[in-house]
Design a protein around this nucleic acid. Structure first.
Lengths: 247, 247
DNA sequence: CGCTTCGTTGAAACACGTCAATAAGCGTGG
DNA sequence: CCACGCTTATTGACGTGTTTCAACGAAGCG
């Protein structure tokens, strides 16, 4: 059976939760591991939410720790030191899962970097799925391993790269997630979902240094800046060269 | 039944693999999730190895990707940039699991920071356990989540702390894992399982800066250095103060 | 003993941070 | 539509924490 036909049949099954029909997590996210009765069950406890840029995903609302799937938009994970110094420790895109299973002691904040749509469900609903559907746990485990890979790769960036390489690495990361190709060339373009302050917090720099490195990359013709949030990468290879890829 | 009696009964069961009897992973590690037949099965594919300080845990020996449990000693995980810059992205102690399930594409090196004993088993043995024993997968998932927490906490250290705070944070980390209390005081003491170069690679600093910050902490009476690898922490609270704990 | 590796310390260089001024974008209200 | 205030981004001048370069001492080992 062709992929197209499979997809058609798939969407013709009208009895699974309406919100899941347009949700990417249903296909590529953790919910893809769920069979119909499980999905319906989880759907009963699920609420959709829209959050504006800057709003925090509250995990302890109504005294119930909650989890979420990102339906659209970008989420940033931040940690803060006692004196206010801040570090972004992760960035997540649709259809990734947000939350820390099995522990509510981890001090981390999940905040909407753009306007976002999320699908929230209570702690208990997730943990019963975990026990009942082995594939579900496997997918969540897989996502966690990828996040660990990403965190470790970013540790190299934070610990050993120069300011210029850091900014280039960050733009390269975004290129992989939110860039759109430009017809008739091998250039790509994207809208930066972050402020300079966000970038600084992710890179362990100040906003001034980020700004200076951006103009440095622009003057070196490695990036083009239409305005501060619209970036074009004419040659990805050049950006990779400026990022000092690991061996 | 008392814990002691339980433990006695446990060790009287003579038919599980001899090496497991003294292995901490059998109790607190991932193997603790295995029942007798599974343990015997895994034991058949298991080999114990001694590695000297500096040796690399090879995961592709005999064309078979392998995994390992740490029986004793300390392991460091490192990543290297094309021009040789190096970053340690993780430190592991007994009885932790070493390896990256489900992928052999992650560029990371596991190296013995001290002389170590490990228990290695092939990819297939692990993955069949994963499919057959849900508790086993759950424990591995749990360890991965803890590693992710640790990695993110370390990102804050790398991105936002000063050299002095970095060194203090590192010593505090070791205090939690390898320190022994000193009788008749609330001081603790430990043998540093790392060279200054290792510390520098973990902290994103140079060896000279690490050395300078160590003497600075010594002069501030926050640490005592018997010789370069034997450290005493007279008051842990003072070290925590120098580490800038997160909120 | 020499040789090598490892750690410490000093002086100078520099990358990044800090402080400050200015401009650009954007919603609000007159 | 422009004026106003506010936030965000850019750029410059200057300061400083960390690196770089170098010398030296201590410890391990044939």
């Amino acid at each position: 059976m062709s992929d197209v036909k499979k997809t058609l049949e798939y969407f013709e099954q009208a009895n699974f939760p309406a919100v899941c029909q347009v949700c990417n997590a249903r296909v590529h996210g953790i919910c893809g591991a769920l069979k119909m009765p499980e999905l319906v069950h989880l759907g009963r406890y699920t609420k959709q939410r829209h959050l504006r840029k800057g709003e925090v995903i509250a995990f302890d609302e109504d005294d119930v720790i909650e989890y979420a799937n990102i339906v659209s938009g970008v989420v940033k994970l931040t940690k803060i030191l006692a004196d206010g110094r801040q570090q972004i420790v992760g960035v997540q895109f649709a259809p990734e899962f947000v939350g820390r299973p099995f522990s509510d002691a981890v001090k981390i904040t999940a905040e909407a970097a753009t306007d976002i749509e999320i699908c929230v469900f209570p702690k208990k609903a997730l943990e019963s799925m975990l026990d009942e559907a082995p594939d579900f746990e496997r997918r969540l485990f897989g996502q966690t391993l990828v996040q660990l890979d990403e965190a470790r790769e970013w540790m190299v960036t934070l610990g050993r790269k120069t300011a210029s390489e850091k900014v280039a690495s960050f733009l390269l990361l975004l290129t992989r997630h939110v860039a759109k190709p430009i017809a008739g060339s091998n250039a790509v373009h994207f809208e930066l979902p972050f402020t300079r302050a966000d970038m600084a917090d992710f890179l362990g720099l100040t906003i001034e240094t980020v700004s200076r490195q951006m103009t440095k990359l622009r003057k070196a013709r490695i990036i083009e800046i239409e305005n501060s949030h619209h970036i074009t990468i004419p040659r990805i290879a050049a950006l990779e060269g400026a990022s000092e890829i690991e061996t």
